[in-house]
Every structure is written in structure tokens, then in C-alpha cells.
Design a protein around this nucleic acid. Sequence first.
DNA 1: CAGTGGTCTAGACCACACC
DNA 2: GTGTGGTCTAGACCACTGA
Lengths: 245, 245
Amino acid sequence: MQANLQQDESRSPRYYRIYQALLSDIQQGSLKPGDVLPSEMHIAQSYGVAPGTARKAIDMLVDRGWVERQHGKGTFVRRADFSHSLARFFRLTDREGVQLHPKSELLDIRVVPGTTDICRHLDLSDDSELIEIERVRRVDEMPLLHEIIYLSQVRFQALLNLPPDAWGDLLYPLYEQVCGEVVFRATDTLSAGPVPASPAHHLGLSPGAQVIEIARLARGYDERPLEWRLSRGRLDWFHYSFDIR
Amino acid sequence: MQANLQQDESRSPRYYRIYQALLSDIQQGSLKPGDVLPSEMHIAQSYGVAPGTARKAIDMLVDRGWVERQHGKGTFVRRADFSHSLARFFRLTDREGVQLHPKSELLDIRVVPGTTDICRHLDLSDDSELIEIERVRRVDEMPLLHEIIYLSQVRFQALLNLPPDAWGDLLYPLYEQVCGEVVFRATDTLSAGPVPASPAHHLGLSPGAQVIEIARLARGYDERPLEWRLSRGRLDWFHYSFDIR
DNA sequence: CAGTGGTCTAGACCACACC
DNA sequence: GTGTGGTCTAGACCACTGA
């Protein structure tokens, strides 16, 4: 009956404060992917609540995809499953709507002064230095996409020292493992336009031909912009698919 | 080792069976959009379970978007909110990413024999008759999209008797009000291709010019295919935007 | 005021994993 | 066996709504 404890600082319910505490443990890294959480009873006792209340906090973590229950074993922090990162963020398909698995070739990485436009997208001051990455993504040697990627030089500096063979086909796992930055969501905007010289060359087009442009702004857990990306692809190989709910 | 088949007719938990029963009431229409559900206590008593169990069933309905709680008032079946239908299903934007609000002009509606391809998309037998609708969607008199839409003649027959002035800018509200069919989700697939004669004419292009093609399969609550739609738009006015999570 | 949903308790028994 | 999560009970008090 110590209902008094709860009164003051809490306008939010106990299960919600426990949820926030556990989530913070995960985001700060004191609970790492693959780690087991304390048992429900343990959490209940250490926060001084009934088991049902602790369970409700864990329910929230499960619903939001942070942890996974395993009956009889425990509750575990989910690994950022990058076998699914491709399926989540790469939406190009073949003619029949089947997901493609492109290979990536790094063309160039360098530090450039940011343009006003890009810095504004990334919520940076207008004169910030940016990391610019240029890539080609191929399926069966066919160049499907040409990509130019901009990142904050401050937050992604570690990428500059990577040996060439450390670059795989996916960037987002690299962002997490090398820079500790996790891409949580993204907004894609598709349009068409004439292709500049460098992408034209890598896509096997003459400059000025029409291409699809996919502009992407990717954000972290806290909604901060992390990456601005401009992908260009040939019209004739372009198939892009997704669900609306 | 007794086979502890609890001989409950159900291997599923009680809250889940209550969830299914309530959901079925909503889908069958005995609970209509805007209706209030029985109170949690009432549900608990009438199913013979504890209040917490009934509440958990309602939690599932809330999580999945079927009902909405209103503290102090009750729990209500959600209305399919067609003031947001446009924002949900129409993703064309202007150059700056701002949602467009197109006007629709009905060009033609007729009954046609279905092609194998389209009937298969709609889960109909190959020789089914279909309703074919042809529309143009304009913003400021500029023809933005040409659409051809296919529907089951059986389920959407009521559309054939509509007076021309009953056709507004949006079809999905019409499907619900006139035919009782609710579009719940859709899959869009974007690609590019040469434009046939009729769309070319309405979009102000010469036949064979490249256009964007948006193929959509829209489905109801129960995942049944409802509508197959092929929209074509000029490359130079094409901007399509959405979120990935 | 009575009725509703929102939170919380302190247990119970079951099913599953592992030793 | 013990310890875990999964389900369920039978209450309690609170906060909000509307008559």
C-alpha cells in the first residue's frame, strides 16, 4: 500500500516508466543485441511493482520490436537483423515483382563542402563539411542504380578510414557497426529527370537521357536526419514496389 | 505421459477467441463503424471470463486499428476515415513534396470480358466479366494521370447505375457507400514504359512516349483482391513520395 | 451521480527449456 | 527438478464523461 510513492514525479503510469527505463538501457548499450533481459519477476521486484505491471512494460518493448520473448528461456534484445535490412530499404524488383539483390561497387568517398540544399535536408549549418560517397549497384553485372550519398562528416568520420574491402553491399549495417548510427526510417521521393554525366557513364546512357531519381532522407531512432541519398536508375529496368495501409 | 489435450475445443487462449468473435462481429457488420462495443465488464460477464481477459481481447482490436477507446465513454468501432483516403492512397506530390489534390473526370465505364492476366490478379475465373473504368485526374487542368480500373462485375454492379454527377474525385468512398466494399490496403508497383494511344491522347503526349506506370492491387479487410488499376503519368510531372519503416 | 475505460495488485496454474 | 514466459483470476482504486 505505498501508493504515496507513485504520486509526485509520475504523471505517467509505472509500466510506461519501466518501459522507458528498459528502452534507455537498450539504446545506451548497457543491454546489447542478443542479451537476455532480467526475468519478469526480477524486473517486478527491482522496480517494486506487481508482475503484471512489469509484464506490460515488456509487452510494449515486444510490440515495438525491441525485444523478443522465448518461452521457457527468457526475453532477448533483438539483433538488428541486417539480413532484412535489404528487404526493408531496397525496393527495386524485377518485372514480376520479385526482390532484387544487388552488388555494390564503391566508386569514390571524399569530404566536400556542403551545399545549402543538402545541409538543410540534414539539419546542419550551411557551411558544414560532408562525406560524399558514390556507388554503383549491379545485378548480374547490369548497372541498376547510381547512388550519391551525403553524410555529416562529424558523425560518420570513421568511414573515411575504412579499408576498401570492408565495404560490403549494404551501407546501413556499416553505419551501425562503424559509426554507431542506426537507420530507423526513411522517406523516398521518386521522380524523373535528365541524367548528369557521371551517372550516365556508369549506367550506360548518353548524358541527358531520362532516368528515375530516388531521393531519400534516412533518419535515426530520434528522428534526426542521418543520410541524404540520390539514386538514379535506367527507366527500362525500373520496377519499384511497396504496400500502402 | 498423459496426452494433456485439455479437451478445450480450443488450443487458443480465451482472450484470442474473444478477439476473434468481436472482430467477426465487426467484419460481418453486426457491429458497424461508429457503434459502441459492450463495456469491458459486460464482455467479461457474457463470455464468462475475468475483466482482464476481456480487456486483453479489446487491446488486440485497438492495436490492429479496428476500434478506438474513449476514456469515460466507451470503445467504438473505427470509421474508415475517408477524409484521409486521399492522403492515404494518393501519393503524387509537387516538386517540393507537397500532396496534390487532383480532380477526377470519368471518361468511360463499361462491362468487358476479363483477360486472363487481370482475372488472375483479382482472383476470378478466367472468363469473368469485369467493369472497366477510365478516368483522367487533373490538377489545375493539367492532366496528371490516366487511369484504367478493373472491378468484379458481380461485386460492383451497383456502380453501373450511378448517375454521372454521383462520381466524385475519389472512388474508394464510392466503393464503400454504393457497393459495401472497403479498401483496406494496396500494393503499388511503379515502372516506366511506352504509352498506348488513349492515355497518350489524354496526357497530351505522342503515342510511344515514355510514361510512368503505377500498377495497383487493392484489397479488402479479408485480403480479397477488390480492384486492379493501371495509372499512367507524364514523366515531367511525376513526383511520388512515401515512408519506409 | 453512475458508468466507462486506465492502472495496478498478488496471487494461481500451465507450457516450455534446460539440467 | 528449477526457472522462464503465457494465461487467467478477482478484486482494487483512479480519471474521465455525461446526465
